[in-house]
Amino acid sequence: MQSDISEAATSDKESAKRPVIVIGGPTASGKSALAMRVAQAFSGVIINADSMQIYGDLPILTAQPDAADLAAVPHRLYGFLRLDDACSAARWAELALTEIRAAQAQGKLPILVGGTGLYLRSLMQGLSPIPEIPPVYREAAMKLLKELGVAGLHGRLAAEDLVMGQRLHPNDTQRVVRAWEVLQGTGRSLGEWHQLPPEPPEGLRFQCWVVLPPRDLLYAACDRRFETMIARGALPEVAVALAAYGGNVLRAPGGKSLGFRELADVINGRRDGEAAIAAAQQATRNYAKRQTTWFRHQMEFGNFMSPDNIEMKFSESSLQRIFQNIRDFMLTPD
């Protein structure tokens, strides 16, 4: 028995040294292409950390991996939700942690890649230890949302949870639903849970890479990518989503995808195509600027780098330096 305990303790120590690679950065920066090369070099599994690429109805508009990428390298947490299904940072972190454990069990290197900084931070630093909420409470919350609308649900929340009622905007559907389901599922305010100290995941250590191209090159890449999306069929993709979900999709979590509202305006006859593309490109550049600021200030511990050319790709010499750094990280214990 003592031997079994000792072996278990040794196993726990070894699991604490298991590496996870994180590749973050603004949209169109080339981080997904880098993740592909790292995954191919280290037998990795790419795990999505982008809050819009989780939605399955807009693979083109959200720049999800294409069929060739999916065939070349395992990808997880892409396109698995409906546009009207909210995914909080806590929910994503739980799903990502499950995928990390699964990759490790298969002897593969987990590689998180995405531009949603809150997702990445929630996993690496941990969140308040809110217990898992049974699905029945989310289902009940969504049913109540349909019956009362978000303002009505907010009013019901405020009557039972003064703290969250005052903290949340009456039109913030995702957070109002989350606060309600936590209140009903635990009997405690989400505000109370948030006051508890975060609990980082056990058994993991992270090496972070942040891809930050020069601003002018990044903005040009944003513009090019949206034009490519249009050429690949983003407009009919949005049309199908509007037909499937109705006008309410514009207020749904997945309806916040960059360019969705602008292309919906084209379909609904409120804007011409050229003006919609220009507006969507501007919105994308604005978002990329906010992401750049976040990563610079919130992930100062990361390895910052810039692609070697305007196509947002890294040269072979740069890749080899990155690979060597990753090898050293994987072989060096905490």
Rank of each mutant, 00 (worst) to 15 (best):
Q106A: 15
P59I: 02
H75L: 11
H75N: 11
Q106M: 08
E94A: 13
I54W: 02
Q106W: 03
Y78A: 06
V73D: 00
A96F: 01
A105F: 04
G79N: 07
R82S: 14
A89L: 04
L70A: 11
Q53K: 14
Y55S: 02
A71R: 15
R91A: 12
A102H: 14
Y78M: 14
E94P: 02
Q53P: 03
A86T: 10
D66V: 10
A103G: 07
T98Q: 12
A93D: 00
W92Q: 00
P59D: 03
R91E: 14
D69I: 02
L58N: 02
L81V: 10
S88W: 01
A105M: 08
Q53W: 04
P65Q: 10
G56W: 03
A90E: 04
P59Q: 05
P65N: 05
A93S: 15
G79E: 05
Q53I: 12
I60A: 06
C87M: 15
Q64D: 06
R76S: 13
D66M: 09
A90P: 01
I54H: 05
I60C: 05
A96N: 03
S88E: 04
A67T: 09
A68I: 14
P74G: 14
H75Y: 15
A105G: 10
I100M: 05
G79Y: 04
T98S: 10
T98G: 12
S88R: 01
Q104N: 08
A86Q: 11
Y78F: 15
F80G: 01
A67G: 03
L58A: 08
L81I: 09
D66N: 15
A67R: 10
A93N: 01
R76P: 01
A63C: 15
A67L: 12
A105C: 07
S88L: 03
G56M: 08
P59A: 08
L83S: 08
E99T: 07
R91T: 13
A96Q: 00
W92V: 01
P59L: 05
A96L: 03
C87E: 04
A67D: 11
L70T: 10
A96D: 01
D84H: 08
A89I: 08
R82I: 04
E94Q: 12
L61I: 14
Y78I: 15
Y55F: 13
A86C: 07
L83G: 11
A102F: 09
V73Y: 01
W92R: 02
P74W: 06
I100D: 00
A90K: 00
A63K: 02
I60T: 13
D84E: 11
